[in-house]
Write a protein that binds this DNA or RNA. Structure first.
Length: 310
DNA sequence: CGTGTTTGACCAGCGC
DNA sequence: GCGCTGGTCAAACACG
């Protein structure tokens, strides 16, 4: 799969460049912070949504996926590449459509973890995971695969690998990835019974680009005792942004001044037909924001979205 | 002491 | 069947 992933990677890289061009982002990033153009990377990701989730999301996804039809393929292909083998099992069955409902919460789908891990836990007797093991009973591997969690992939121009999103993450692994000199880090939400994971890797073609892939949906509120720069990100935002006043232009400006920009893509496990219609139908954009993608993002970044709601 | 990171080992899936 | 690769585990370690 080496050649294929290489192509995907190249494709993605070009796509990200296209995004920057679309957003009229300069190649250099003079900053209003007077901070060499850098602020915590969390700003570029979280604040974009924090300031106005709808606008930022529009900006991110509509521009990324909407303007450039190939981009959606690229992003989705990228995040799907390791699970291509699932396609035959899943395609046409639309098992991973996500809505704001809790029907797809981790509690309901603990089998998000790979079967191999379950097998190992079964052998080792991994504490606190009995429910997973018991859930495994009576299921085939294929059935487990179908329960892949939806994933969201962000490309963020940042010098910081691990983007603060308000949740607490525990790093549980790091692997060198093929065709990249940068390792991929694996994080898991530290909240009990929440199996949301994320992978963080740096683009080997553009080291300034960090690719963050979230998998699953949090089944708990945002931790109250936040550490790190989530609050700081909010402060950054408050300094010069008024919630709700965020426009596409401001997002562009935000990405510009923060020295960071982000692209996002949603991975619904082969259910991508919606993008075409979104692109073709201007009115579909609203539906799309009210639909699964927007809601998914809300669930993944509740702290960001809830702050905007009166 | 609790929490998070590092890192070598292990395992399963896939391609050849 | 074998080797490669991605994903995960868990002991050891670091840190506040």
């Amino acid at each position: 799969m080496s050649n294929e992933s290489k192509d995907l990677y190249s494709y993605q890289y070009l796509s990200s460049l296209s995004l920057y061009e679309l957003m009229n982002l300069p190649t250099s990033t003079p900053s209003s912070y007077g901070n060499n153009g850098f602020v915590p990377s969390s700003y570029s990701l979280a604040d974009c949504f924090q300031s106005s989730p709808g606008a930022a999301y529009d900006s991110l996804l509509h521009k990324t996926l909407g303007v450039s039809p190939s981009s959606s393929e690229v992003f989705n292909s990228l995040v799907d590449q390791e699970s291509k083998h699932d396609t035959n099992d899943v395609i046409g069955e639309t098992p991973t459509r996500v809505s704001a409902s809790s029907s797809s919460s981790e509690a309901d789908h603990p089998g998000e973890d790979s079967g191999k891990s379950q097998r190992k836990r079964e052998l080792v007797g991994y504490g606190g995971e009995e429910n997973r093991i018991s859930k495994k009973v009576g299921k085939t591997k294929k059935e487990e695969k179908k329960q892949r969690e939806p994933r969201v992939s962000f490309m963020t121009k940042s010098e910081v690998d691990h983007l603060e999103d308000g949740y607490r993450w525990r790093k549980y692994g790091q692997k060198a990835v093929k065709n990249s000199i940068y390792p991929r880090s694996y994080y898991r939400c530290t909240t009990q019974r929440c199996n949301v994971k994320k992978r963080v890797e740096r683009s080997f073609q553009d080291p300034t680009v960090v690719i963050t892939t979230y998998e699953g949906q949090h089944n708990h509120p945002l931790p109250t005792n936040l550490r790190g720069s989530s609050a700081a990100a909010a402060m950054y935002s408050a300094d010069f942004m008024t919630p709700g006043s965020f426009t596409h232009d401001m997002f562009r400006s935000s990405a510009y001044t923060s020295g960071g920009s982000a692209a996002a893509a949603l991975d619904y496990g082969y259910e991508q037909s919606g993008y075409g219609s979104v692109n073709a139908n201007p009115n579909a954009h609203q539906e799309y924001r009210q639909g699964g993608e927007y809601e998914l993002l809300k669930e993944i970044f509740p702290s960001i979205f809830f702050k905007q709601e009166p």
